[in-house]
Design a protein around this nucleic acid. Structure first.
Length: 897
RNA sequence: AGGCACGUAGCUCAGUGGUAGAGCACUUGCUUCACACGCAAGGGGUCGUAGGUUCAAUCCCUAUCGUGCCUACCA
């Protein structure tokens, strides 16, 4: 017996202390910089990581994305590549301004009294402060980012590029200023982007209004309309009947529209009608965008306050009458009677007046979706406003066509592949992009104006042109205009991309991979693709990986307002970073949502504990054994087996990682580490080291160290802390300063030999099964095992199954329980073997049905159609089952006697 | 309305044209000196439904139901 040794490791992994210490050590060693790679010409793996908004803190969604990125980054770093995980923060325009102004309000600061320049500075400081906090969270998560290259979207190095892009696009005619319909936030007093608008379902009214015809019909129509109150009216009889959810906008109607193929209204197209209350004469137009089955099939067209109507207005050259102002109140265009009312008051007033005039025919309630601001209560009004736009589909120089061509040509590998189609659809549907915002937080437009008499001069440039009287535009850029350039501006800021050279391809560009949540992804990805293609003539990234969303255990989206969110800091402090990372990855297939609960995180913390204890055991058993290096061909079957298994797992995991199948790779490693390595191999190791001779000890100690070292390397991307800690602390594992310096790939000579261990596992399993059923698991019993095997294997079977070997003849018949296995029949010496009868009967039944199944199969056309090897395999299975059944029946017959 | 995905054990998910899998949960036994955050042995599924192709379908095709998401519309 070997002397008792103790481990230098504590009872549990003290992750709270050790995680912070390990991170600091990594950072101080500079291993997160691409320059740390041993080869200066190694391939580059770089990610311009999506910058979170610098106005709050990280939520679990951020942790998820970062975990995926860090796993990829650490994997490629182990592969010897120059890895650059470039971190940053986004100034997040309107969102930050709202957060910041709320904060000032809470502090009872009078925002209006502060000059904009001061506000800007204070907000910048606020973001700097938040960024610092978030950076600490990112480090806590183990993110192996190159902090020396961190950037903020308002950093002058990035801003310069943003302004330059704007100027170039202006010169190229890809940017214009114009009055078009946009989403207007009444609360924030600015235009906002499509993604900032949400649609929520509300109960609303649908009112049926009649607009008199200028020239009444001469003969009555054969078509009838059904009103919701059951009435039927002849088409044209009461003028044009239209249904609307927003009666107040009728004051701005400049047409009525019907579907061109709608028989009911064919004769009326081209006629004129009168908008009630305002008395405006409007045309009846035909447009295929009208759905003839909805309402009455007639729509009132309000080009100034509806996106679809706006498009129709453009095509039919309709007048724009703006009746709702930016303050959310009715304008004087709405008429003296309504001007100054809120839209809600106006709706009531309009309905009252229409009813008085007999123009309100009917009303019904419906569910419909109304636009609201991101934070819920904000009212969004589509209205026409003068803004700056990017022309995304300019004739002869279409940004979106070029982007689309690249995607269609497969220049970006998309994971999962099914998102390719979605990506293309998004690009197809892009409308001109409003990039101006009426807020003070952000990049101020580099545009100057000067009034010269009636004319207004416009100059685009960072500096005011010569001459007096120029004033700069007070608008700022849509935050996506700057983050849309993140894919190249970040690398350009560090001199890794030359913006004046197109295509700009070099080792850092296009960047290797983009990881994005699939919710925001398409919106942002499209903009990045557009701007990068424009600026550099190439795609922004070679690969793009979409993650799903995080959901709670009931499948609900996590959100602050629902209160079902998991705080990363909180769970990390209780279960450790590694457990969180594992639970964010296990079961998460690309693009699909993932369910995360505290229970899941807690569950994976057990795996961390398991690794810790495996290390303790290895240390105890091997610390006194000197490592003489791994022999080319181990002599022990157990060692040959585990090395073969290791090589197999290494191949599988490597392949899955390269295919971005991260969860499958993690799952494979989890199973191998726990079931194969701990449950089987470590148990064998104990036996070989405790009871074996010196040669056994030597080879086994060396093997277990090598396999464990390899496991730690492979696990490191997923659980960086525990793996590094054990690598550092367990004697005999460490070869370089940090795991990051190890090599993922390794040359393992193909281990020869037959697979004797699977037979061992079958025999041990069969014995354990019998013992367990007879409730004698801990008892040492005698057993006869047919066949000859090495001293090592015999020893292992005896110790793992807790048996002594005897010959068949030594066991009395009334105590001998015969148990078939693939290599023959085991005979176990047990008390009360009749208690095993039920199990035997079940086994027999199982075998009979297997036999019947195979016989049926072989008697059919399978035998002639299927591949010969398949048929052969079935024959073997049949033979085996028959033999087993025979033995079981023999045993049962003896019991019955 | 259109598109996409999903539907496999109680839960979360793998998977394959030829013997249905894992983890968690559950049952039973075991404080065997790494770990009870553990070990061992078990129970549990006609792979959503209906057709089709095939010698053979959980897998391929068609239809259908259910769930989720996206886009458009909701005048």
């Amino acid at each position: 017996m070997s002397e008792q040794s103790t481990s230098s490791l504590d009872k549990h992994f003290n992750f709270k202390e050790r995680e912070a210490a390990l991170y600091t050590a990594w950072e101080q060693a500079g291993i997160f910089r691409p320059e740390a790679a041993s080869s200066k010409s190694a391939p580059v793996f770089n990610i311009a990581m999506p910058p979170p908004n610098a106005n709050g803190e990280l939520h679990l969604g951020h942790s998820y994305g970062y975990t995926v990125m860090d796993i990829l980054g650490r994997f490629h770093r182990l592969a010897g590549e120059r890895v650059l995980m470039l971190p940053g923060k986004d100034h997040a325009g309107i969102q930050t301004q709202v957060v910041f102004e709320k904060k000032l309000q809470a502090e009872k600061v009078d925002i209006k009294s502060i000059p904009t320049a001061d506000l800007y500075k204070r907000c910048y400081d606020f973001c700097t402060d938040r960024a610092k906090y978030m950076r600490a969270q990112e480090k806590m998560l183990g993110l192996s980012a190159d902090w020396s290259r961190e950037l903020f979207t308002l950093d002058p190095r990035l801003s310069d590029i943003v302004f330059e892009t704007f100027e170039r696009m202006w010169k190229d005619g890809l940017i214009y200023r114009g009055s078009r319909i946009i989403n207007w936030s009444v609360f924030s007093q600015t235009a906002i982007s499509d993604v900032e608008v949400e649609y929520v379902e509300r109960d609303g009214g649908l009112w049926y209004l009649s607009y008199p015809l200028v020239q009444p019909l001469t003969k009555s129509s054969k078509h009838e309309l059904a009103l919701p109150d059951g009435r039927k009216v002849k088409v044209g009889e009461l003028g044009m009947v239209t249904a609307t959810t927003r009666p107040e906008t009728m004051l701005g109607d400049t047409a009525l529209a019907v579907h061109p193929d709608d028989e009911r209204y064919k004769d009326l197209v081209g006629c004129e009608a009168i908008v009630p209350l305002v008395g405006r004469r409007v045309r009846i137009i035909a447009d295929k965008r009208v759905d003839p089955t909805y309402g009455t099939g007639v729509i009132k067209v309000t080009p100034a306050h509806d996106f679809a109507d706006y498009d129709m207005g453009q095509d039919h050259k309709l007048e724009l009458v703006q009746v709702i102002g930016k303050d959310g109140l009715m304008t004087k265009e709405a008429g003296a009677e309504f001007a100054g009312l809120s839209t809600k008051q106006c709706r009531e007033a309009v309905l009252k007046r229409l009813a008085e005039e007999g123009r309100l025919l009917a009303e019904s309630t419906i569910k419909h979706k109304v636009p609201v601001g991101e934070r819920g209560k904000d009212v969004i009004e589509p209205l026409v406003s003068e803004q700056w736009f990017v022309n995304v589909d300019k004739a002869g120089n279409s940004l979106k066509r070029r982007a689309l061509e690249m995607v269609k040509a497969g220049k970006i590998k998309i994971y999962p592949a099914r998102f390719q189609v979605l990506f293309e659809q998004w690009l197809e549907n892009l409308r001109d992009w409003n990039i101006s915002r009426q807020i003070w937080w952000g990049h101020r437009l580099p545009v100057w104006y000067r009034k010269q008499g009636d004319k207004e001069e416009v100059h685009v440039g960072r500096q005011a042109p010569a001459g007096a009287g120029w004033t700069q535009d007070t608008d700022t850029f849509d935050t996506w205009f700057s983050s849309g350039q993140w894919a190249y501006s970040t690398f350009a800021a560090h001199g890794m991309v030359n913006l004046d050279k197109t295509p700009a391809s070099n080792e850092f560009f296009p960047s290797h991979t983009m990881v994005m949540g699939r919710d925001i992804l398409f919106f942002w990805a499209c903009r990045m693709l557009l701007l990068t293609t424009y600026r550099l003539g190439d795609v922004p990234w070679k690969n793009i990986f979409f993650t799903g969303l995080i959901r709670d255990e009931h499948g609900q989206k996590m959100s602050k307002s629902k209160g079902n969110g998991i705080e990363p800091n909180d769970v990390i402090s209780r279960h450790g970073t590694d457990a969180l990372r594992l639970s964010l990855v296990m079961g998460a297939s690309p693009g699909n949502d993932i369910i995360v609960s505290e229970r899941k995180i807690e569950g994976y913390s057990k795996f961390i504990n398991k690794l810790w204890n495996a290390a303790k055991l290895i240390e105890m058993k091997t610390c006194s054994i000197h490592d003489k290096g791994l022999p080319a061909q181990p002599t022990l079957a157990a060692n040959r087996w585990i090395l073969r298994e290791l090589a197999r797992v290494h191949r599988n995991v490597t392949q899955k990682m390269q295919e971005y199948e991260i969860s499958i790779a993690a799952d494979e490693l989890y199973g191998f580490s726990w079931t194969v390595f701990c449950d089987w191999y470590l148990e064998m190791m104990k036996v070989l080291i405790d009871t074996g001779n010196d040669a056994y000890k030597q080879e086994t100690a060396t093997t277990v160290r090598e396999v464990f070292r390899r496991i730690l390397i492979m696990l490191h991307p997923f659980v960086p802390y525990i793996s590094e800690e054990l690598y550092q602390k367990v004697a005999g594992l460490k070869r370089t300063a940090f795991l990051a310096g190890e090599s993922w790939d390794y040359k393992l000579q193909e281990v020869e030999g037959t697979d004797e261990v699977s037979e061992l596992m079958e025999i041990v399993g069969a014995i354990r099964s019998v013992k367990s059923a007879l409730n004698i698991s801990s008892k040492r019993i005698a057993v006869s095992v047919p066949g000859a095997r090495s001293a090592e294997l015999s020893l292992l079977i005896k110790e793992l199954a807790r048996v002594d070997f005897v010959s068949d003849a030594q066991i009395p018949g009334d105590r001998a329980l015969r148990k078939p296995f693939s290599g023959g029949v085991l005979v176990l010496d047990v008390d009360g073997k009749e208690n095993y009868q039920k199990r035997l009967e079940k086994d027999a039944e199982l075998n009979r049905s297997t036999i019947a199944g195979i016989e049926k199969k072989l008697s059919g056309e399978f035998a002639t159609h299927a591949k010969a090897e398949l048929v052969e395999r079935e024959r073997e299975r049949l033979e085996q089952s028959r033999k087993a059944l025979q033995e079981i029946e023999k045993e049962l017959a003896m019991m019955v006697q």
